[in-house]
Nucleic acid binder design. Structure first.
Lengths: 186, 186
DNA sequence: CAACCATACGGAGAGTGTCTCCGTTTAGCA
DNA sequence: TGCTAAACGGAGACACTCTCCGTATGGTTG
């Protein structure tokens, strides 16, 4: 790629990252192009669709997922707290942008989606959590990572769209955890 | 209202019902006007916003909610089956149109929303189910109707957006039920 | 039944966003 | 320095939303 092209591409992604966060995923692309100091043609050549641009914007974010999971897996306490903690981290991860939870969660399991790579990273991270808990015998056997992603994603979507606070979200995540963990007889 | 105005209004709502179901809530309003054989001005006079039209389309639907709840409450079996059955009915109710679950669930708890009346009907219906179960001592005490609506709504949103089948949705609803019901020690 | 007018109609058009085409410019190389 | 493939960017076609206002008409009154 020519140096000027690379420069423009980087500028567009940087501007898009800010605009998407401030205005949501339906911000005007021509506007992003203008803010980045390029013509709309340039933006659309680099990113033929809105999702292609979104994909680029999310790239840096993907690395954070693995990191967060690594850290979560070091937790030593009770399974319930561990799982709820992970759920909260997961919700925070996919709620980086307004509309992000819906975008990511509805693309989950769809191989055709332009951001399917991003969702695979999320499912893979969740799979590690599932394996960890199942090795300890704490999780019901029929719980799958994809299902877990969808359910926590569902809560995140509602929280995102209704502007719920962490205090309103936590009890819902607790319900999910209780529904997925093996009953302890308490 | 003049007779011709009433006729036009009815035609618009009827067409909108079909178009919303087939194409989702972001269908072109000018297109709906054209299909109804009126000018865009006429449509916008009757329904100043998209949500106003949506509200009219949903009017008939509201009656079905109370009816469904009445029927559900007659169920005599175990609490878990009752609750899962209600969840399935609820998901079906709010999934009448593509995009419906998201629309309804994210408006829930927001008094300003143009469809807040519709969401109140749903929460009230769910409240009856909660009361019923709590009278039997089957539900955890901290479970609230609004929270229940949001969580089941979250699952419905994902199911709607990812085109999940009933077989994929049921296990998720079972997780919710297990997380909300009082542990039975089994 | 004729005349009137408040009510309703509907289309032209302004504003905004998406996306493409193509003439112009320029980076990188020989 | 000159060449050319690569990249630029803006004009403009197309789509959707929503409004304004001249025109048509339902319903009422004398």
């Amino acid at each position: 790629m020519r140096a000027d092209a690379q420069r423009n591409r980087d500028r567009i992604v940087e501007v898009a990252r800010v605009v998407f966060r401030e205005r949501g995923y339906d911000a005007s692309l021509d506007d992003i192009a203008k803010k980045a100091g390029v013509g709309p043609g340039t933006l659309y050549r680099h990113f033929p669709t809105r999702d292609a641009l979104l994909d680029a914007v999310m790239q840096a974010w993907v690395d954070g997922v693995t990191e967060t999971t690594d850290k979560a897996l070091t937790f030593e306490g009770p399974a319930r707290e561990f799982l709820i903690g992970w759920f909260e981290a997961y919700v925070a991860l996919i709620s980086m942008h307004k509309g992000g939870p819906a975008k990511l969660t509805s693309a989950m399991g769809d191989e055709q989606s332009p951001i399917s790579h991003k969702t695979r990273v999320l499912v893979a991270a969740t799979q590690r959590v599932v394996d960890h808990l199942q090795a300890r015998g704490a999780l019901r056997e029929d719980v799958e990572a994809l299902q877990m992603c969808r359910m926590v994603g569902g809560v995140a979507v509602i929280a995102d769209q209704s502007d719920l606070s962490a205090d309103e979200v936590r009890p819902m995540l607790a319900v999910l955890a209780d529904g997925m963990l093996r009953p302890t007889g308490g």
